[in-house]
Simulated scan of single mutants.
Amino acid sequence: MSRLLSDLGIDLPVLAAPMAGGPSTPALVTAAARVGGLGFLAGGYKTAQALAGQIHTVRADGVPFGVNLFVPNPVPISAEAYRGYAQAVQPEAELYGLKLTDGDPVEDDDQWTDKVDLLTASPVPWVSFTFGIPDRAVGDALRRADTTVLQNVTSTDEARRAAEIGVDALIVQASTAGGHSATLTPERPLTPVPLPELVGQVRDAVTLPVIATGGIATPADVAAALHAGAEAVMVGTLLLRTDESGASAPHKAALVDPAFETTIVTRAFTGRPARALRNHFTDRFDAIAPAGYPALHHLTGPLRKAATAAGDTRLIHLWAGTGHREARSEPAEQALARLASRL
């Protein structure tokens, strides 16, 4: 067992990934720790105050945990491209009485400073970063507070950049992962590299400990990633249907619905590449969606929320990794223990 895990008493090297937008509840994070692993709260898309509340809830359970933050790494979009996409999507929005074409692009930073201040003032065991690499000063401040700092990367180049700012470990994400890619260059197509191969490449490039994630669906997947040199794996999609997950009922059902035959990496929903179940929205808008994050996230957000409330899976961002068919309706502890059953 590596020091990365043993320092927190982690003896199950299968961790629960942060899934922003609702799935990563405090109950899910606590369940991961109860079975000997560790879970991450998702700091993205919520206020610093709301994140503080979730941290308080998990901390009261007396378990190790982590928090993930989105590092500001905006993909600018021109007003013309934004308006054009809003006009294209508007007919779908009209089904729910929504007007998408009136506002200007929203280019916020997801309350970055407030969340960093929260985590330095009230430290948690682990903090991971995605979408961008923070300034060295941010990582240094967290480490002074005895927080282990992890960086999500998708290539050897990103791994080297993360190592240069002194992070403690890397979360290596393959393109098979569900939801948003951690890529630092979201305007470029993702390079499909099998997760064990990617882990090996990163291990050859840097000396940092590695956690592997992306498309892990079976005990064999876990074993392959660890054999390649990862010290642990991180799973998300496989936990979406668990009892503790905060994913919506339509999302949970779609993951095992035969009507959804495949996944697709698309920027149609948010302007940033993310893997989702192929549906009407991706078929209609993937080819014309401009790069533009977070502007497109905010643009389509009201429509996606309305569609979720109505159970309209044609228009929902059904984030899913390539192993989504293995997701089961069960306690999270059972799912994580099963994945570790061949270790």
Rank of each mutant, 00 (worst) to 15 (best):
V199E: 04
I55F: 09
P189Y: 08
R59M: 04
A340G: 07
A230H: 03
A205P: 03
A332G: 03
P294A: 07
L28H: 04
T308E: 15
P302C: 13
G21A: 11
G139K: 05
P13I: 03
G36F: 02
T270M: 12
V206T: 14
E326V: 02
P258A: 08
D117F: 07
R284L: 14
N279H: 14
R314I: 06
T183S: 15
L239V: 13
A289H: 12
A320L: 04
R136I: 06
L299E: 13
P125L: 05
E244T: 11
E261H: 10
V63F: 05
V35Q: 00
R161K: 13
P18K: 04
R34I: 02
F40T: 01
Q151I: 00
V256W: 03
D61I: 09
P219V: 14
P302M: 12
V127M: 05
P219Q: 15
F40S: 05
D104A: 15
G66D: 05
V124P: 00
Y85W: 13
A259Q: 15
D140R: 08
G37Q: 00
T322A: 11
L4K: 01
A88S: 14
H56P: 04
Q111C: 14
A79H: 15
S329T: 14
L150C: 03
E330Y: 14
S175K: 02
P302T: 14
L100W: 12
P258N: 08
V67K: 03
L303M: 07
T242N: 07
H298T: 12
T101F: 08
G236T: 06
R325V: 10
A232S: 12
A276Y: 03
T147E: 09
Q111N: 14
T120Q: 06
T185P: 01
T313L: 04
E197I: 11
Q173F: 00
S6E: 14
A230I: 04
P13H: 03
S248E: 11
F260Q: 07
A247T: 09
G22I: 02
P105Y: 09
G214V: 06
T130P: 01
G37Y: 00
G22A: 06
D7W: 02
K99L: 13
P72Y: 01
P91C: 13
S78E: 09
G271S: 05
P290W: 07
D204I: 10
R267N: 15
L343N: 07
A289D: 12
T101K: 05
A50C: 05
D168T: 09
